[in-house]
Design a protein around this nucleic acid. Sequence first.
DNA 1: CCAATTTCGTGAGACGACTCAAACCGGGCA
DNA 2: TGCCCGGTTTGAGTCGTCTCACGAAATTGG
Lengths: 343, 343
Amino acid sequence: MATQKELAKLAGVSAGTVSNVISGSVRVSKGYREKVLSAVRALNYQPNLIARSLKTNRTRTLGMVVPDITIPFFPKIVRGAESAARERGYFLIVLDSEHNHAREVDMMNLLRSQRVEGILLVAAGGSKEALETPGSVGYGPPIVYLDRVPRGIEADSVSVDDRKAAEMGVSHLLARGHTEIAIITGPLTLKNEQERLRGYRQALQRGGVPVRDSLIWPGSFNRDDVVRICHRGLLRPAGRPSALFATNGVTGLEALRSIYAAGLETPRDIAFVTFDELTTDDFFQPGITSVLQPTFDIGHRAVEVLLNRIEKGRPNRTPDKIRLPATLVVRESSDLRSPKTRP
Amino acid sequence: MATQKELAKLAGVSAGTVSNVISGSVRVSKGYREKVLSAVRALNYQPNLIARSLKTNRTRTLGMVVPDITIPFFPKIVRGAESAARERGYFLIVLDSEHNHAREVDMMNLLRSQRVEGILLVAAGGSKEALETPGSVGYGPPIVYLDRVPRGIEADSVSVDDRKAAEMGVSHLLARGHTEIAIITGPLTLKNEQERLRGYRQALQRGGVPVRDSLIWPGSFNRDDVVRICHRGLLRPAGRPSALFATNGVTGLEALRSIYAAGLETPRDIAFVTFDELTTDDFFQPGITSVLQPTFDIGHRAVEVLLNRIEKGRPNRTPDKIRLPATLVVRESSDLRSPKTRP
DNA sequence: CCAATTTCGTGAGACGACTCAAACCGGGCA
DNA sequence: TGCCCGGTTTGAGTCGTCTCACGAAATTGG
C-alpha cells in the first residue's frame, strides 16, 4: 500500500507537506493541497495508523473485555459503548474473557500491548483477585469497571443500583399481595448478587413481611444447579412460595424453565419476576415482568467516563462512580392469580 | 511504559541484544539472557506491538465485521472465529456494521488502516453493491465471506447449504403428513433467502405436493412487517395452512409471536419449524423444531481458511468455498396435531 | 520600493522494535 | 605463537508518520 513518501514523489512535494495535508494540523496552500489530494486518490492511499500511533503515541482505540459475548446482556452494553466511542472518534476492540480470570489478565495485557488508551472491563467475577489484579498493576491505560464494581480499589465505575432495583421488583410483588416470595440468586461471591439479595430483604422488612431463610435460594450461573435448586424449592413439603424473584437473566431463564417443568403455570400457580430480559425482546406468553437494567446506557456512560479521564488529562482526580437506576416493566407474569393469558 | 532501550541500559547490554532476547529469534547466551529478563521483570516491560508491527509489517490481528452483534446468531459465529484465531496466535477485532453498507465500508477501511492481516465479513446484505464493493477494491488484506456469499466475485467463503437445509426442514413437515405448508422468508434480496425458498420448492416437488403461491410469504427483517404478513396469512379466508416454515431466526420469532397472537397454539393448531434458535437454548414450551446452522464451525472454519491464505502465501490460488450442513432438531412444535405439551 | 512581518514548504530527526553486517571473543589447531 | 572459526554481541539503519526549526517566498505598510 502506498506511503506518504510515494505520494510526495507523485505530487512533487516534500514528505512533510504530504503529512500536513493528511493530518490537517498545519494549513497548506490550496494548490499544494490539491496536488496531494489527487495523488491520494490516484494511489488510493490509506494512512498507516500503526506508524501514526508510534509517532503520536495515541491510538484513539479503547479496549473492552466482557465475560461472555454470547449472553445477550453483554452485546447490548457493547452497543452502547461502541456508539459512544464512535461519537467521539474512537475505535472499540471487544474481547471475551470466557469467565476466566487468567484469560482476562491476558486480554488486558494484550490491550496494553496494543496501546489502547483506556479499558472497559466487565470483570470475570468470582475471586476477589479477579477484580483487583487489573487495577493494581498501577500503570497502563485507565480502566472503567462496568456492571461489576471492584471492592477495594478506588476506580471509575458504571453500574446499576442493584439494591434498589431488587427492592423495586420485590416491592412490586408485595404490592400485588404476595408474602411468600422466594428469591433465586446468582453466585453470592458477586457483590451485585449480594446487593440484590439485600434489596430483597429490605423490601420485605419495609413491607412488614418476615424474611425466611427457606425462601432464599442461593444459586449460581450453572444452569443445571439452578434447575435443581428451583426444583427442590418449588416442590418442598412446606408448600411452594406464591412468587419467585430471580436476580439475573441466566438464573431467571432456568427458574422459569423449572416452573414449567414442575407443571406450573405463571402467573396462575406462581408469580414470577426476573432481572433482565429473557429473550431479545418481550416474547413470552405470558409476558415476564422484569427489572430492566439500562444496558445501552451502561456502555455509553462508561465510555464517556473513560474519555473524560483520558482527554481531560487529570489522571488522579477522584473516581467517577456512576450508578444508574433500573426500570420495572410489569407484564403478565406477576398478575395476582389471574387466569393464564394465552388463549 | 518501559522500552527496550531502557531495558538495555538497566541490563548493561545493547538494544540489539535485548531485542534478540525478547523476540527469541536469535540465540543469546545464558548470562545475558538472564540479565535482560530480570530487567524485564524490574521494569514490568510490555513490548510495544505498535512499533513491532511497523517494523515487521505483521500485526497477527484479524478483523471481523458483522451486521448486528445483538442478534444471537452472530456472537456464536464470533465465538468460533475467536477461538480459532486464538489457537493460531492471532487476535480478533470485531466490529458491528449495524446493517449499514456505508458503515461497513468504513469499518473495512478502518481495519485496513489498522493493518489487520485478514478480514472476516458477514456482509450487511441488501444491495448487490454491499457484497461486491469490499472485494472489488482489489488490494488490502484477504477477505473471507461468512454466511452470505457474494454473487459475482471469486472469493473464499464459508456458508451453509441453505437449499438443502430448507429442504430438510420442509421434508420433515411433509413426512409428518403436512401438505399445506406455508413459508415466511426474510428479504429475498439476500441470496440465502432465495436459496432457502428454492429448498422449500424442491422439497414440495419431490414430495409430489403442488407449490402454491398463496403459501409463499416473502418477508423482511422488519419485525412489524413480518407480524403483519403472518397475521394476514394465518387468518385468510381460504383457511390457514397446517404448517409454517420460517427461514431465519428473526422472522421465525415474529412468526411464532403471530401464531400466538392469532390465538393459535403450536403444534395443536399449526405445526411450526424455523431456521436458527429462537432463544439462547431450547427454552420454549413446547420446544421449537429448528434447522440449526453450525454457527461455531462457521466462524472457526472461516478463520482457518483465512489463515491458510495468509500463511501459506498463495494469494491467487482458487478460492475455498466451504459449505457446511445444517442439522434438524426435532422438537414438539412439529408434532402432528398432538395435544399441547405444557401441562 | 524596501523593510518588517506573515505564511508556508522543506528536511532532518524522532517514535520503539527489529535486522542485518560487522566486530568481537575465546578456543582449537597447526 | 598465530590464525581461523563458530558463536555472540553490537550498532547502525529501517519501517511510515509526525513535528519541529529553518528559510524562502509572499504580503503588508510606511
